[in-house]
Design a binder for these strands. Sequence first.
DNA 1: AGTGAAATGCACAATTC
DNA 2: GAATTGTGCATTTCACT
Lengths: 153, 153
Amino acid sequence: MSARLDEIDRKILAELQEDAEQSLDEIARKVGSSKTPVWNRIRRMKEAGVIRRQTAILDPESLGLEACFFVLIRTSEHEADWQRRFLETLRARPEVLEAHRLAGDIDYILKVRVKNARAYDTFYQALISQVKIHNVTALLSMEEIKSETALPL
Amino acid sequence: MSARLDEIDRKILAELQEDAEQSLDEIARKVGSSKTPVWNRIRRMKEAGVIRRQTAILDPESLGLEACFFVLIRTSEHEADWQRRFLETLRARPEVLEAHRLAGDIDYILKVRVKNARAYDTFYQALISQVKIHNVTALLSMEEIKSETALPL
DNA sequence: AGTGAAATGCACAATTC
DNA sequence: GAATTGTGCATTTCACT
């Protein structure tokens, strides 16, 4: 699964992670190459799935999304059908920004962005009404110390 | 802090979140407007900080980053100096993708992306050698069910 | 705040080295 | 695998409504 990338590929990825609006010329200059090879490398990395997509990062506060919760979930159900419904519910809900299945005694963790505590409760009620859940702990974020989309290269 | 945005602004943001590579013409067509007004709205939203930046989303697996941990941290130290050093450490470490200060008995949560369990241990050892931490629980992700950068509008 | 058009610049492709 | 050139499209600006 891991693609073979050389030093220049990694530099290009670093630039694209930092600012995807830069022109090819700028990127080429910074990585010490020129337009065409950089363009070809980017195209290949998109085809290989190394570069998934390009997106705009928005400011949650500006959109009135002032509450962020991490939700730890324990369940007693481990059947295929239960899991399918649970995953569908998570994927369908736009306030769920992240969802992971975990090893250990906590089964799932979610990251949920909402307007306020009341909006979280609405989400929570909807979730437990749709799938049976044994135990839920919500951790409320007081301060976002770091929020990074750039992966370490 | 919350900006006033009309229906067209929100539609533009939705398009940019989904695919920031689209041309102005395409976005304009989809939101039922035309090039110039869309361009002006985007510029204003960038100035207002609603749109923070534009970035490439990379595939962690392709980069060999196959392990993802959520780290729950309890500390006994709550002095300003300790906190400053702790935050600096987190911000300096590129494998820390998210860090939040929490309400409740768990003080911090981190999301950490690394190559493997050994790389996590290296990070962990570095962290506890730099700042005194009372209690750490690492939750290992087995499966990324959802990973979304797009905020709900 | 939106339209239409005009100009600049860039992305992309083909060709050549 | 990289440089050069060229075409067309996208971005950006402006004049007008």
